[in-house]
Design a protein around this nucleic acid. Structure first.
Lengths: 230, 230
DNA sequence: GCAAAAGTGTTGACTTTACACCCATGC
DNA sequence: GCATGGGTGTAAAGTCAACACTTTTGC
């Protein structure tokens, strides 16, 4: 077991959701963490995950462990990186295949929260177990530098959405305001969304159009690797 | 060994070098493959790699296995993706952490070539063992869609180089001709290369300037993860 | 009508692209 | 001189950011 030629394989997931900041009211990124219930790092917060069974696909294992620990089912799931530094865990060396996931805001609200599962704002995290702070930093960087935002934004939203909602998502991820006029033109030109013809009434202003994500436009993303949706 | 909860960990590397195509004389991407000397897939060509020892860093293992099998030492080494599909290997499930590497053209010429190691043009490969064709496709896609070309180009070239050589690299990777005038301006504006003041004489035309790669400009690449150079 | 957000139009700044042209060397 | 690639200049086309302005709803 603790032989020189063995490493243990684990799967972890960084899960992002978008919800309003309690103080400012602005949409910000949050993520759920689980409290360690055994050594090492007992009591500290960590990313949800678990050991990889020999008969389960990597993405399926990521999906399952995060469902078991947090009750969440991701709309978007993609491999992030594999961390395997010798010193990242005391004792036997652990190689972790890490995924990153996005969940819808309303689903995130329903997620199990308790003594051992809690949401934290992505840029104000406590000190996490193992090298998990580093992992979250990298996941945040990937989220923000990802060119293909339409799919990401779609993962945060429902089936239909207004351009203002879509813009909110982009602004929250990029952490800067976007010009509504220019944003509209950019999105329309990209062809990643389709006008449903419907409008959203109720607000005390002109009813905005509802759009739907254009499924036929999701190529040229991961390249030859098909996009994995857990 | 063949327990339900065990997977075997391997490390493989896709190595690229740039060399002139025999027929056209144009620079194209080539990669070395090793012949399988045992089952499964005995006799087929495969990516260099090996099992991961429990006491070796991932990047170090990638570096070592490709040195042992091909004699090459990469100037650029980066993690590509982790492949772990259940059906990718007969028998026990194998999870492979795959790296991609770039080597200098002149060094590639010195590399061991024999019955069991051979170079192939990247876009005309034979049928490889396991899922290695898929892995190479993905590595090629990553190479071509990588925004940060200067470091990549530098990895293919020597310490000093002319802008024409640098342009050759870019043209080979992107597979399209580039305007020499505009290329020059773009590179000079980027600040990734420095004029050495020296010139390269001997050709029967105006002697081109020699440039050097600017080390202080290599940030904002992998983000929070430091670049690994094996 | 008024406020608020949806949605359209326009202009100037900047970037990219195409190509004309001069420069310095070997033969 | 002539051929060859190095290196410079420049104008048209295209892209992007800022912001004025019109439209449609709830109250």
């Amino acid at each position: 077991m603790t032989s020189k030629n063995q490493s243990t394989l684990a799967v972890s997931t960084v899960i992002f959701a978008l919800r309003p900041d309690e103080a400012s009211g602005l949409m910000t990124l949050w993520l759920p963490l689980v409290r360690r219930i055994r050594e090492p790092h007992l009591g500290q917060w960590a990313l949800p995950g678990g050991w990889l069974p020999g008969d389960e696909e990597l993405a399926a294992a990521a999906s399952r462990t995060l469902r078991e620990t947090t009750g969440l089912a991701p709309k978007y799931l993609e491999q992030l990186y594999t961390f395997g530094d010798l010193g990242r865990s005391p004792g036997n060396r652990v190689v972790s295949v890490v995924y990153w996931a996005l969940v819808q805001s309303d689903e995130a609200a329903l997620a199990a929260v308790g003594e051992n599962v809690q949401w934290f704002p992505a840029d104000r995290l406590p000190e996490l177990a193992f090298d998990h702070n580093r992992i979250v930093d990298y996941a945040l960087w990937r989220l923000r530098t990802k060119v293909e935002y339409s799919r990401i934004a779609h993962a945060f939203l429902g089936e239909t959405f207004t351009l203002a909602q879509l813009r909110d998502v982009h602004e929250a991820v990029l952490q800067k305001p976007l010009d509504p006029a220019n944003f509209r033109r950019t999105v329309e030109a990209s062809g990643t969304v389709v006008d449903t013809g419907q409008h959203l009434a109720g607000a005390r202003h002109r009813p905005p159009r509802l759009y739907r994500y254009n499924d036929s436009s999701r190529l040229a993303d991961q390249g030859p690797l098909g996009p994995s949706i857990g």
